[in-house]
């Protein structure tokens, strides 16, 4: 397996936020993780990204133990819920940020960023500052910045939570397209049922710090805990 998370536990004070986290994920796959606010999703992502140290457990990426590896050395990019762009850089420079850290030649950076801007349908927006972009455009730049560094794993923390329905749908389609184009392996955290089903090859449900990963989507749909059944009943009742 490409990503293996083994017995990860994380507490803040007396509160155990992540309890015995165990799952694995194949390369180029997306694991959608559904869960209510405060169930430990963000802490789980930050622990995998190295931004929060676990109390115990092990994280293996491509067979290598990265539990103690510094975040900047993990090749794992954590994406915030909001479209958090560097305010002093334009769209081009935001996408080029990670590439410049790797000291890639200028010509190659230009080529990669222009290709990314094209993939993100952001042609003509390269010189715009974050304040001159719409919410959807900012989120796309944010994606582009994360993907351009070619990370081994992408951690998405409710990435479309702040977008309106229409933009959210377009972003979901774009994300699907990008995961195929750039062979992305990702953990996609959301609290939207439909989005979880649409975005993931696998689905997990997190409750009170415990993550349950389902064998297939049918199991997920049939589990009354996930809320899918009550949704079906609700919409069926309207017909």
């Amino acid at each position: 397996m490409f990503l293996e998370v083994q017995h990860i536990v994380k507490s803040f004070g007396d509160e155990k936020v992540v309890k015995d986290l165990n799952f694995s994920l194949s390369a180029k796959h997306t694991l959608s993780i559904l869960g209510k606010s405060g169930c430990g999703k963000t802490t789980m992502l930050k622990t995998i990204g190295g931004l929060v140290p676990p109390d115990s457990g092990k994280i293996l990426l491509n067979g290598e133990d990265i539990t103690e590896t510094k975040p900047e050395k993990r090749s794992i990019v954590y994406l915030y819920q909001e479209d958090l762009l560097f305010p002093h850089l334009n769209a081009f420079e935001n996408i080029a940020f990670g590439l410049r850290l790797k000291k890639i030649p200028e010509g190659l950076i230009k080529e990669k960023v222009e290709h990314m801007l094209h993939s993100l349908e952001l042609e003509g927006q390269a010189d715009k500052m974050p304040t001159q972009l719409s919410g959807g455009q900012r989120q796309r730049v944010s994606f582009g910045r994360a993907i351009s560094t070619n990370p081994s794993l992408l951690l998405l923390d409710e990435p479309f939570g702040s977008l309106d329905t229409g933009t959210r749908k377009r972003m979901q389609e774009l994300f699907k397209k990008l995961t195929e184009e750039f062979d992305i392996t990702s953990l996609f955290v959301t609290h939207d049922l439909k989005e979880a089903v649409l975005m993931g090859n696998q689905i997990g449900f997190m409750q009170d710090g415990v993550l349950k990963v389902y064998e297939d989507k049918k199991d997920f749909i049939q589990d009354p805990q996930t809320g899918v059944q009550s949704e079906i009943e609700f919409w069926g009742g309207l017909l």
């Binding site: 090749s75 794992i76 958090l84 002093h88 940020f97 850290l101």
Partner: peptide, 29 residues
């Protein structure tokens, strides 16, 4: 106000070390 803390974490996640975070995020912002 400019959320430099979160931007620093983001930069770190993108591969920046402490020195690069200071030079490319903290100081310019």
């Amino acid at each position: 106000n400019e959320r430099v803390e979160e931007l620093s974490i983001l930069a770190q996640s993108l591969g920046a070390n402490a020195n690069q975070i200071s030079r490319r995020v903290f100081l310019p912002i």
